[in-house]
Amino acid sequence: MSENPQWSVMPLGRQLNLKRGHDLPKRLRVEGAIPIYSSSGLSGRHSTAKCEPPGVITGRYGTIGNVFFASEPYWPLNTTLYVEDFKSNDPKFVYYFLKTFDWDAYSDKSAVPGVNRNHVHEELVAFPPVDEQRAIADVLTSLDDKIDLLHRQNKTLEAMAETLFRQWFVEEAEDGWVEAKLPDEFDFEMGTSPKGDTFNEHGEGMPMYQGNADFGFRFPQRRIYTTAPKRTAKKGDTLISVRAPVGAQNMASETCCIGRGVAAFRLSQNPMFIAYTFYKLRAMMTEFEQFNAEGTVFGSISKRDVSELPILLPPPDRIEKFHRHVGPVDAKVIANCKQIISLEKLRDTLLPKLMSGEVRVAS
């Protein structure tokens, strides 16, 4: 909490008013343009708005601690709390402030966690003057806007690359292309998990990815490390989730250990053609995902199954042409991902410092 005398210290309930969200039975959740927010985020759309923007919504029951900003009319479900009255505070500042709030301290610790609004209202908090609130919100919003722009750009670039792949290797596939199996074109490694006592979360050893839960937009997120890796992927390898669920896709940003939920692929002809590998395997997702419905509770695909996946072998010159055209596009996606990681790290470092007054912004 800031000790700056210009910041007002008082119970949260005097700085703003939180209200429990509203019931909306599923049978009444008709399709419309109004976003519906649950404790975990956007959960559909409705034809009627319950609240006018700007809105700040946070999880109250089930998933607590998530905070969302609504810039359009919205409906907060009864699993949420929403700011009914900002009491002249800047809404975007309130949004960022609530993202740093210690919601776990108010969890009832039950099997399905929940928080009581009245207890939250009693927490002593410090808010700066409104001009400084706006300056803080502007800094954080500029970072979030840049991150959002890069995400949208990446989706556009990936869609362009997928369209070109589909045109050159699916729609324009020629009768003379050889029918083969996946190992005839790609080298691959099925992961296996090291011993549990080699795991840690403080960065000792090699990062290890165990499956879909670790995957991000393009690169997996570091979470677990191992001091005794068994099988590894190389930088640029395409990673596929092979267990529960099968088919999620990422790319290795570095040499890493792969657990038994992951397989790593690279083009035998030229491992540097990482974009071709990535989009060829993305085009095969239907073949991978069929193993989610093989009669088991948790889908999985074995090395033998992977080895039997059918493919067409295009001529090397077409693969090289694709690499020349799409390689730079995909390199931009990778560069954007790295910039997103840097911006998110900067934002997450600044956020608590700005909210506590440790770092000041001229208003």
Rank of each mutant, 00 (worst) to 15 (best):
122 E>Q: 15
103 W>K: 09
139 V>R: 08
127 F>A: 02
84 E>F: 10
136 I>W: 03
150 L>M: 10
98 L>W: 12
123 E>H: 11
148 D>F: 07
150 L>F: 09
102 D>K: 15
102 D>F: 08
90 D>T: 07
133 Q>D: 04
118 N>V: 14
123 E>I: 05
121 H>F: 14
143 L>H: 07
150 L>V: 00
86 F>C: 10
121 H>W: 13
89 N>W: 01
118 N>M: 13
84 E>Q: 15
121 H>G: 10
145 D>C: 02
141 T>Q: 09
84 E>I: 06
122 E>I: 08
121 H>E: 14
123 E>Y: 09
150 L>W: 01
104 D>F: 00
115 V>Q: 06
99 K>E: 14
131 D>K: 14
101 F>N: 03
94 V>E: 07
114 G>P: 08
100 T>R: 04
86 F>N: 07
88 S>D: 15
119 H>D: 15
102 D>H: 12
145 D>R: 07
115 V>E: 13
124 L>G: 03
148 D>S: 12
126 A>V: 11
89 N>R: 15
141 T>F: 02
85 D>L: 11
104 D>I: 05
98 L>Y: 11
114 G>K: 01
103 W>L: 10
141 T>D: 12
104 D>W: 06
128 P>G: 04
105 A>Y: 08
118 N>W: 11
99 K>Q: 15
108 D>C: 03
122 E>V: 12
113 P>D: 02
127 F>P: 08
98 L>V: 13
104 D>V: 01
109 K>A: 11
150 L>T: 02
103 W>S: 12
101 F>I: 10
104 D>K: 14
110 S>C: 05
130 V>I: 14
131 D>R: 09
95 Y>M: 05
137 A>E: 06
124 L>M: 15
92 K>V: 13
129 P>H: 04
119 H>S: 15
111 A>R: 00
112 V>R: 14
129 P>E: 01
143 L>M: 08
140 L>P: 06
109 K>L: 01
141 T>N: 09
131 D>P: 05
113 P>V: 07
128 P>F: 00
130 V>W: 01
117 R>E: 13
95 Y>C: 02
115 V>Y: 00
119 H>E: 15
108 D>L: 09
113 P>R: 08
148 D>K: 10
121 H>T: 13
140 L>R: 04
140 L>A: 05
97 F>K: 01
126 A>L: 06
113 P>N: 07
145 D>Q: 12
108 D>I: 09
95 Y>A: 05
150 L>Q: 04
123 E>C: 07
96 Y>V: 01
114 G>Q: 08
87 K>I: 05
125 V>L: 09
129 P>Y: 05
132 E>S: 07
92 K>R: 15
139 V>Y: 01
122 E>D: 11
106 Y>V: 03
135 A>E: 03
113 P>T: 05
136 I>Q: 01
99 K>H: 04
141 T>S: 15
127 F>Y: 00
138 D>Q: 10
133 Q>Y: 05
132 E>A: 04
125 V>W: 13
149 L>R: 02
149 L>Y: 00
94 V>M: 12
94 V>Q: 03
133 Q>A: 05
134 R>N: 04
148 D>E: 13
92 K>M: 11
95 Y>T: 03
100 T>E: 11
143 L>R: 01
138 D>W: 00
103 W>H: 11
89 N>M: 09
98 L>I: 10
93 F>S: 02
113 P>K: 07
106 Y>E: 05
143 L>F: 12
149 L>I: 01
